[in-house]
Design a protein around this nucleic acid. Structure first.
Lengths: 150, 150, 150, 150
DNA sequence: TTTT
DNA sequence: TTTT
């Protein structure tokens, strides 16, 4: 089987603390939500719109314990893993689905404390403008790829 | 907002045909399910286990039309996009969730016809052993996947 | 230290056979080149241009042996790994650099034999038009994200 | 052509300022180096080893100008793009190669100023231990990385 | 040096 | 509901 790929990569902020569950055999899992944002300009109204997407993150065993120890609500983290949709029978007899990201790798990027320390010291809001740039690039790259001499 | 990343990358087979929906404004979307497989060895029983994960793929506009034209049930495709969980009110008043992959990029990898042509001509089953190889590198993770009750 | 990410993901064709090197301690590595293509339309001339990029792939130990056994020149493969630039002293005293992709995961996608079997049977050239689509999508997605009712 | 994928994703720190080059036609590119780290435990000696990998990043046009405006030496950034190896004739007549990451997307993660503000306020060194965690999941690979002579 |  |  296989010849397939199932990969998710997220950078986002924790929407809540890591919730741990311990199993009898000694294993454990940690769960926490991560928020990612997408921002775009509504073409009709010209206004800037931001959507937040929430992702259910699941970590196991040692990795879970490390996450619980070092991650808190508001922290920014990189998470890499596999998409998995669990299903179960609802009380009304219908099938319910819940999609999770089962973590295979992660890296802590910055704590909420850091961000606040910075916000208190900095005057310019770097992020808002900065990340709008990515979309800009996507368009311009394709168009000009052939006429730049390097 | 932002400073975030929301990326999904899948290689898998279509479980069904591309279903198109056309909107009044001229836009359209196509939807299709993709299956990815993970294989591991149950540490206790020693048996080889395969799980299939299903993903809801959503493509828009021109890309949707190209997918409809060239992709069929059984074909293998690479898909890259964004994770998005829609929610709505169920008839019982509870919130329901559905997670989709909104496609930003894709590449056709092979048609079912190709695979069958090959299967008819080849004697050795290349994939089964071959893709076990990837697991070699990530053995530790895979081995523990079966004894956690969730 | 860390809090960093170094990831490369390639789908391409082998430009040559896997070359193995065995070490005294029992370890081994395999090396092979992979070609990826990018296609775009020259805005000024309107002509379709294709560039090929070559990547030096390095695999270790068991994974290397599996690659040697199952991969041949012309086969298509998915490769995931880490970017690494080695440097050494050239004969003229200058520093030379060589960048490699050190494989962490991979999946065989199709053999050259398959492609040929297919080419012999099929009449329509699926890929050329199909993959041009990806770029199309990148533009259209951003522009219309707000006015589609779903 | 195509049916291929060429993708690089990096999170790292700028090793220098963004260097801009302007072209006659009005286009421009920015270049800067990014450092990523990998850490593993030498299995024989038991000591913790850290390697730094340097990557040549290339950004174009508007994106380049935004990078120049907001990124400084030491800042942490996420960069996504394409691997490209340029080649040229060396003075000795030999072919030289230089591999770059041509940016398609990016996100600013944190400024050096932030990190320092945080370092001044925090007592516990979160990152060093925290990112060791990721290795937990991929231990088998990392452990063997040091005893292969290449 | 690959592939379509 | 796919594929090997």
């Amino acid at each position: 089987m296989s010849g397939t790929l199932n990969k998710v990569m997220l950078i986002g902020h924790l929407g809540d603390e890591v919730k741990m569950h311990y199993f009898e055999g000694g294993g454990c899992i940690g769960r926490f939500p991560i928020a990612t944002n997408e921002t775009y300009t509504n073409k009709t109204t010209g206004e800037r719109v931001t959507n937040t997407d929430w992702h259910n993150i699941v970590v196991r065993n040692k990795a879970a314990e490390i996450c619980e120890k070092y991650l808190s609500k508001g922290d920014k983290v990189y998470v890499e893993g596999r998409l998995k949709t669990r299903q179960w029978q609802g009380e009304d007899g219908n099938t319910r689905y819940s999609t999770e990201v089962q973590v295979q790798d992660f890296t802590f990027l910055s704590t909420k404390k850091e961000s606040q320390a910075n916000a208190a010291q900095t005057q310019k809001p770097v992020q808002p403008e900065a990340t709008g740039s990515a979309g800009v690039e996507k368009a311009s790259t394709a168009e000009q790829e052939d006429d730049l001499p390097f």
